[in-house]
Nucleic acid binder design. Sequence first.
DNA 1: CAACGGACCTGCCTGC
DNA 2: TGCAGGCAGGTCCGTT
Length: 271
Amino acid sequence: MPELPEVETSRRGIEPHIQGKRFQTIIVRQPRLRWPIPADLATCLSGTVLDSVQRRGKYLLLTTANGTLILHLGMSGNLRITQPDQALRKHDHVDFVFADDTVLRFNDPRKFGAVLWSAEPVTEHPLLATLGPEPLSADFDGAYLWQRGQKRSLAIKSLIMDSHIVVGVGNIYASEALFIAKVQPNRAAGEIDLQEYQRLAEAIKIVLQRAIEQGGTTLRDFSNAEGKPGYFKQALQVYGRGGQPCLMCAEPIQQLKIGQRASYYCRVCQQ
DNA sequence: CAACGGACCTGCCTGC
DNA sequence: TGCAGGCAGGTCCGTT
């Protein structure tokens, strides 16, 4: 479900409701997510004040004076702000209850998400330490991507979806960015020139920024902290449009598998 | 190293 | 209506 824009939408949605508030109770109904939820999580959190809600790639970082609560939404995770007396839905695995009875409720049907705790500086956590740069930062540009793509034979789409190269680019926005940059998704990363990498880096920034402005993409079940969908789906140019006419040239959009993932492109517009 | 396939898990859709 | 099969927004891990 969530790529960077959806995680950022969740971050912006929850932060105003919980920042500065004190964790009171943690209710874990299902500890078996991607990794087990730490058994002492309530001990780590209870009584501490939530300082900020930050984002690193697709990880949400809820910082406190004692350490950082790390949340990942996986493929199907969702966060919403609610109250303790609100009826539970299926797959409501964790409630973070604050002192004023505000509840941050974690729901994840497929259980690919994660709820973890880091007492050390969170940038040193094994899951975060080796991540690539933020795509919307100045650290990420065409020259960087070109350098990381040297002598790599894997498909360019797989390269930009590797979080150790650049974070936050998932299956939807990888196809979209490659269309905007006019680069075929299955070309070997090492055979793409600097100019094309510059177009691609710029396209990644543009598509992610626009998606954030639209509140993310809702395909079936993404919703923000208020339960509202995102509106970027209507702006998708190739993702999910196999067989339909290219919006630029009317050629049918091609669909193929790259690294087990559905990929979409226009064979005329993208070289 | 790099590349690849499998693994985790539930829900939804299609076709028989 | 039931059931099997395939697919889905992520990403780590083991094997080659």
